[in-house]
Design a binder for these strands. Sequence first.
RNA 1: GGAGGAGUGGCAGAGCGGUUGAAUGCACUGGUCUUGAAAACCAGCAUACUUUACGGUAUCGGGGGUUCGAAUCCCUCCUCCUCCGCCA
Length: 425
Amino acid sequence: MLLLSTIREERDRLLEGLAKRNFNNAEATLDKVVALDDERKSTQTQLDQLLSEQKSLSNEIGNLFKSGKAEEANAMKVKVTNLKEESNVLEERFKAVKAELETELLGLPNLAHTSVPHGSTEEDNEVFKELTGTIPELGADTMPHWELSGKYGIFDLKLGVKLTGAGFPVFKGQGARLQRALISFFLDQASAAGYTEYVPPLMVNEDSARGTGQLPDKEGQMYYVTEDDLYLIPTAEVPITNVYRNEILKTEDFPIKMCGYTPCFRREAGSYGADVKGLNRVHQFDKVEIVQVVHPDNSYDTLTEMCNHVEGLLQKLELPYRILRLCAGDLGFASALTFDFEVYSAAQKRWLEVSSVSNFETFQTNRLKLRYRNEEGKTTLAHTLNGSALALPRIIAALLENNQTSDGITIPDVLRKYTGFDIIK
RNA sequence: GGAGGAGUGGCAGAGCGGUUGAAUGCACUGGUCUUGAAAACCAGCAUACUUUACGGUAUCGGGGGUUCGAAUCCCUCCUCCUCCGCCA
């Protein structure tokens, strides 16, 4: 959620940013927000005035009763009752204005960082770092991962359909081991980089979902348990970032570095073709997430640090990758700047997104009420960042496809101590 | 799932209808004292909104109600504790 102070004081910059994001009616929306905020303030001032009068009169009534002047007290009661009627009307108006203001604010996306390129679709994303690593030369009998899975019995989509439905792959045998190996590897790497490991709940309440911006923006993306009003997490970002919801930190608490492995659940309606084939897009997948809560002065350095961490993982896995800087049109609602990491699948001959690293600045912390006490003792919003490190299915797809040989699928060196085997046969 | 008890400031813990945003203790911050430290003493110490400012308003688990007036009474939801049941 954007800050009202930003909307009031940096209107031009904001209009520019909203235009970049192709946001319609930006000017009218900002005008409306400011007008609502003005009304909220003036309503509150009037309301407070009335409440204050009521309060002091009520105290007088108490004193009158004590000194035995019941008649005067009763006369005063009528006065207060009248005041109360007046204030009730104002209070209703106050609540309505506040709610409307909130709705408008929730509809505004984060202001994109100045380095975010213009553009409306993923075609306009900037290649921040060109292909790094080598694309393997594969033979004529190269298979995509969904065919390899059948050949080696790594995972089974049909079985998933039988057990649950489309988009719920079942990993088995060496495939299941590979999955577990990757999780351990990613977590060990995160721990070594100073992240504290969490095992969070896989369902969250409404407050948590709102805190990180899943609600109300992406309600349809989440599985929802109606009986208990809980949401299945679409990413570990949600529970982990909410650890510090409603907290006031000290500057010496920074940086807070957290990581966690969780399954992720996404309803992901509306895609087709190669995008959703095999493991390319599924409803349940595993991911290790890294999250940081930092001082606003350091958040862009932290973004770089987190990108370096993700890059290191891809290098250790010996996967060819590139880094994109997302354009304004492709940038997530809550993000100020996002780098996407893509690995190249030699068999599918396409790039697969395996990580997204973002700085949200104060967009999430404003909703989360996640603050710190600054040098002057004032409470100030912290910055949050997160990144996938990494999401498993497409890593597995790329590993299977790029490492296929006539003898089987070779496992990268770094994973061998985790898998316990060096080739999938 | 059933029965009972409880939720107050960073923590502990009073208050149980009337200037109570809330006693007291601990913790914390600043000061005096001291060569330094400790002790002692003095002062400060919730959050948010609002006001140019003085100040004002709201918040005692959440929401609603009764009353001129609620931390205190009523309803409801949530959470925790104890006992019973069930269970990996």
